[in-house]
Amino acid sequence: MLKVDGLTVRAGSVELVHDVSFAIGPGERVGLIGESGSGKSLTALSLMGLLPEGVAASGTARLGDRDLVGVPESRIKELRGREMSMVFQEPMTALNPLMRVGAQVAEVMTLHGRARREARARAVELLERVRLSEPAQIARAYPHQLSGGQRQRVMLAIALANEPGLLICDEPTTALDVTVQKQMLELIAEVAPALLFITHDLAVVASVCERVLVMYGGRVVESGPIREVFARPRHRYTEGLLAASKLTPRGTRLPTISGSVPPAGRFPDGCVFRNRCPHATPACETAPELTGDGHAFACWHPAD
């Protein structure tokens, strides 16, 4: 379905994403975990051909038999919204405030050549599919009349409008309340054809995905089936992140990772995590390869 090989993203001389490779099969749900500055969003944007000005991607990425990287914008435009689509974090800014939501859902279909009337009817069906009650009424509403959760469902309906093969979600529930988040996650897991799910929240990714890629400093440091990676993390960063995600009882100290995520371009040479890693040795000055079948990691001193 999607195959990414050696994807590198640069802004001028600063490398923001380095040599990222992964594949997503049909129907597969893959999580991309990372903190701010890990390069996870840039990875997704480069697949969509939506990188900001002055940022360029190299390497290869193929969706089916179509190239996504290094091809003209116009070629990706045809694919965007049809073969693959994306749901963003902030549903308020992603919707046009002056247009009824039904028309916005219909628009993505007419853009890709569907008749107007048919698109309108199907828009209501789609709103129903993302479990909005009274879809016909919602279709006539403007974005500001909907709640955050409803707006994010509309975004999902827009993303699904042309039955894309791949759905990319970038922190789709971060702006939502937990009770709304739960329903949204269940919905995404149910309707997504193949899914690339980007988040900073380990528990969220665990409830949606089967496989996970852990990114730090623009590199994939660990990847594999989610149960294996979370139950037995090998990279020291994954290990630290998992430990930091668990809240221990009151009065005890929380496990932490020392220091903070460096700004882009200031990560150390060799292993990107070595300046924060309690197990770092001189060996870590050489960059470790991502090795292993199924469950892979890039660490010289992996956890057992």
Binding site: G240, L241, A244, R253, L254, T256, I257, S260, V261
Partner: peptide, 14 residues
Amino acid sequence: LDVSVRGQILNLLA
């Protein structure tokens, strides 16, 4: 805050 620094801030507050 990022998960990896959340613990630091909560520990500091405590």
